[in-house]
């Protein structure tokens, strides 16, 4: 008589599937919770903004802290980004003697994609993470509750100014990065390839690039700014669990912002054709 045996892997299979499905469902619920929370927060911010119920002093303070203080990192990033674009194009330019297209080549990628994307990632790391840490610390130390007890609306006083400051910062920094990256590309082209800045400028303005290319990148910067501002404010306000909770909130902001930026970049590029 053959002995009856059970396959332990087979016996464990339903449990493993259930665990996987539970984890998958949990992930979807968590994503839906985050998206819902960010949407509600956006509605609250919008309601205060259209009624001009935002604190002007906080707005200026945050614009200085977020935009002006981000200038050094944006300058470095943009100048080297332009230079890298030229280095990448150098082989083709030399092989085909296409010096006249260097401006177009560097400008096309920079204006439409690289400048808004890299600026968004840099600002996300510097401003978004910092914003979450500040708000998270205020939540766990009851400073937000103190504002409420003082009959002050935290959305109007703290959140809306930060939201507007982040979106404006990213827009302005992208515009700035566009110019600086082209500046870096032009002088790197001259130094490495001997392409004069006049030739580079002509390549930019000969008609292959137009305002639509600049506008496309700037539109993306606004979309990236929205997702970054909402994520950083949402996770900051949702912080629980003391100092470790602040760390988790900052981590969630960085990951959500970066993922959101790439996904939205794809969707916006697809929608506006580049």
């Amino acid at each position: 008589m053959a002995a009856q045996t059970t396959n332990p892997e087979k016996a464990a299979a339903p449990g493993a599937i259930a665990t996987f499905l539970a984890a998958l469902g949990g992930g979807f619920l968590s994503a839906a919770h985050t998206a819902g929370g960010m949407t509600i927060l956006f509605a609250k911010i919008l309601a205060r903004t259209v009624r001009l119920r935002i604190d002007a002093r906080e707005l200026w303070k945050n614009l200085y802290k977020m935009a002006v203080k981000s200038l050094p990192i944006v300058v470095v990033t943009a100048l080297f980004t332009g230079a890298i674009m030229v280095i990448q194009a150098a082989t083709i330019v030399k092989r085909y003697g296409a010096e006249g297209l260097l401006g177009w080549g560097a400008g096309f990628g920079t204006l439409r994609e690289i400048a808004p994307l890299l600026t968004a990632l840099m600002i996300s790391g510097r401003v978004g993470a910092n914003n979450t840490a500040e708000l998270g610390t205020m939540v766990v130390t009851e400073q937000l509750d103190a504002l409420r007890v003082l009959a002050i609306d935290p959305i109007a006083f703290l959140i809306a100014p930060r939201f507007i400051a982040i979106v404006s910062t990213l827009f302005m920094m992208t515009l700035f990065a566009d110019a600086l990256a082209l500046f870096g590309a032009a002088y790197t082209g001259q130094a490495l390839l001997g392409v004069s800045t006049t030739t580079f400028y002509n390549g930019l303005t000969v008609g292959l690039l137009d305002f639509g290319d600049v506008a496309s990148g700037l539109f993306k910067s606004v979309v990236f700014g929205l997702v970054m501002a909402l994520a950083s404010c949402h996770f900051g306000l949702a912080t629980t669990g003391g100092a470790p909770g602040v760390g988790r909130a900052v981590n969630a902001t960085v990951v959500t912002s970066a993922a959101g930026i790439f996904v939205l970049d794809y969707l916006v590029s697809f929608a506006i054709g580049g």
Partner: peptide, 20 residues
């Protein structure tokens, strides 16, 4: 309404909640 009602209140929190 809570915001209006809170104008009547002063509160000291357990960990002070001072604005850093």
């Amino acid at each position: 309404d809570l915001q209006k009602m809170r104008l009547k209140f002063g509160m000291l929190f357990q960990n002070n909640a001072l604005f850093d």
